[in-house]
Design a protein around this nucleic acid. Structure first.
Lengths: 200, 200
DNA sequence: CGCGGATCGTGCAGTCCGGGCAATGTTGCG
DNA sequence: CGCAACATTGCCCGGACTGCACGATCCGCG
């Protein structure tokens, strides 16, 4: 499955490009970095860059389309007795744990860099957006409706993105001292309660 | 305030460019249209195009940054006794009514064109995203917290975007036969109830 | 009325993004 | 070992977008 020298090499160069992009942008800012620079640091030709990422911005954000559908798949695999919200909470809990546990500095660096460049924030929103469309489909299946027929699937999918983004944002704001899973869970608490104004 | 020949002309060319972009893309698709084409149909020089929109995509989406802050301002202006959710609902009701009442075909055409091009969906998400950041600030003020300190402001701001997008999507799915304000309101009902699974 | 100052439209030149094509090298399979 | 598949790369091109400089237009003030 994961075997094959070819596969591993591809993954490696992909990661190399992503990290090169991340570092360079952290150093010089988005406009101070060209695709050629990134390719150079990753030791590939500029032309090859585009075999891995369609856009400079995408290389910086570094989230591939395959990871995008993941949420929807995991959601669909949850036990049938769970309500949509319960199932989504569980999926998010798992994802948040994974993200917090990765190579340590990867997500923090990513989020810091993205947060400083509106264009990249937009790109991140876009990635979430396409994940949400897939998710809406899965939600519709679970609730027995169609995406077009009811607001619920689209709404819940978008809301789930909102919860995750809010969690990530709070994580960044805490300078990564807080626990990401706890923050995401907190968001879901508020959602399940109907978003009452927080008492001070 | 609105006076001045200059002001009016600017608004006019801006709208002309937007509509030209919209029509052309509806006819030929996004890649079949160049900035020069759009400028030509709007009767301005290609260079002038960029005085009005930073990007071809932005011209198609056609929502300016000023309109973006609008939601936050209106929210801030709501009576203080309203809860954040109540205030947001009211703002959305007003916006939805306005959008449904505009030059008729403008929003429908916009939404149809955007829906067909993933890049434009992304751009729309981006616009919503920056609106949400402004809104989060306003929510933080109203609830007496800070944006970094609590998940709530970011979350609610993102959720409000989700509600509006879900409403718009359902509106499009109904081929604009349904009432946009009603759809948005329906979304808020679900949110206030904690997003229970819809009964079939 | 008319005269600066500010603002807008425009052309030109240049950089960079991003993609199609074809040659070359590398990997994996029988 | 040899062939087929695929990845890398170079070349080239059109289109997006920017900085600059100049002319035209509009606005406010005397």
């Amino acid at each position: 499955m994961t075997s094959g020298l070819r596969e591993r090499k591809k993954l490696a160069t992909r990661l190399a490009l992503h990290q090169a992009a991340l570092q360079l942008v952290a150093e010089r800012g988005l406009d101070g970095v060209s695709v050629d620079d990134i390719a150079a640091r990753a030791d590939v030709s500029p032309r090859t860059f585009f075999n891995y990422f369609p856009t400079k911005d995408d290389a910086v954000v570094g989230i591939d389309a395959s990871a995008v559908g993941q949420a929807a798949e995991r959601f669909a695999a949850r036990p049938a007795h769970e309500s949509p919200v319960e199932a989504l909470r569980a999926v998010h809990a798992q994802q948040a744990t994974e993200m917090a546990g990765e190579p340590e500095t990867l997500w923090p660096l990513r989020l810091r860099v993205i947060d400083e460049h509106p264009v990249l924030i937009a790109r991140l929103h876009a990635v979430f957006g396409s994940a949400e469309r897939a998710l809406a489909e899965a939600i519709a299946v679970r609730t027995g409706t169609a995406v077009g027929a009811d607001v619920y699937p689209t709404l819940l999918a978008a809301v789930s993105g909102a919860a995750m983004r809010a969690g990530l944002h709070a994580w960044l704001a805490s300078d990564f001292t807080a626990s990401l899973p706890a923050l995401v869970d907190e968001a879901w608490d508020a959602l399940a309660a109907g978003l009452p104004a927080p008492r001070r």
